[in-house]
Design a protein around this nucleic acid. Structure first.
Lengths: 167, 167
DNA sequence: TTACAAAGTTAGGTATTTCAAACTTATTTG
DNA sequence: CAAATAAGTTTGAAATACCTAACTTTGTAA
């Protein structure tokens, strides 16, 4: 089901929303799923039937909705992609919070696990490499406003970097 | 039409393909569009009608297909996003060429112009900041294989960085 | 120049995802 | 507990984006 039968973006969204509701509200109610996704209530029922068919949610009419372990696994993966991508967009690219979130909502469906793993590694590297780190991101922010790099600024930036490493 | 009526991913793909065919083959033929997108010939005709309706292609049955200036503008923007994203995925994240291309094909539709502009700036910064650059990416590659940073390696890496800046 | 192949179109059909509105079940409250 | 309200479901319709197969137009070659 994984490689050959990928879920649609829409169904991935449902799993993600159900997972979030399960953790914040204890249970996922159809009404809240509808609201979370921004869809009419009837659409949720249709989606739940499809997800149940695929063995990703436990669904009986008029009763509580829960994820199966397969569904939870996918939901968690989508949620993880969302976190990683949003972190990159907001902390690294300096995209505003709302837009970072909205964009991550779409990107999470088109970047596969492996690609997101690469992004995770890259962010780790930025955070931990002595040549990068928070002050390097700060330098990037300055570069964005200044529009250019100049040797003087770069020299002091680099000096500070070396000093920080030595300490 | 821009903000309120965004094109579907599918229609964006058609514009991108037509633009590419116009530049490589001089003209975009329906058959080649179908092949480029991986769709049956009939599907292309339907799409062309919709695009013509929206004023993005010049379309008359049985005649040549050309982009209008509005269509060309969108096509070029999508193509640009593709280039930027692919560059980031392959050169920075070190994703293999084919996958970088395939993933960029999807990401180009969900990352808006502003977000891609941010990515452009960030890549520029990586390429030009003395603390980053090609050797920093190289260090990232090493980090990926080693799985960790160690102080000794970092020291020499940083020393080299300083030396390169001075020269 | 006619006949054939290639390119393009049309028609009819399927799948997915959504909506609105009528309907059913569950829950709350007087 | 009964009636009102909330939650959930069903049905029928629409939009999008495909497909296949039959059909038409165009261009070419005998």
């Amino acid at each position: 089901m994984d490689k050959k039968n990928p879920l649609s973006e829409s169904l991935e969204d449902y799993l993600e929303a159900i997972l979030r509701l399960e953790t914040t509200d204890k249970v996922a109610r159809q009404k809240d799923i509808a609201e979370a996704i921004g869809v009419q209530r009837g659409s949720v029922t249709s989606a739940l039937k499809v997800l149940a068919e695929k063995g990703l949610v436990n669904y009986e009419p008029y009763s509580y909705i829960t994820l199966t372990s397969a569904g939870r696994k996918i939901g968690r993966e989508i949620e993880r992609r969302h976190r990683v991508i949003k972190d990159f967009l907001s902390r690294v690219l300096q995209i505003g919070d709302d837009k970072a979130d909205a964009t991550a909502c779409h990107m999470e469906h088109v970047m596969d696990t492996e690609t997101v793993n690469s992004l995770v590694k890259f962010i780790q590297f930025i955070d931990n490499c002595p040549r990068a780190g928070a002050d390097w991101i700060e330098a990037y922010v300055d570069y964005c406003s200044a529009g250019k790099l100049d040797r003087k600024t770069c020299r002091s930036c680099l000096n500070k970097c070396v000093a920080d490493f030595a300490s």
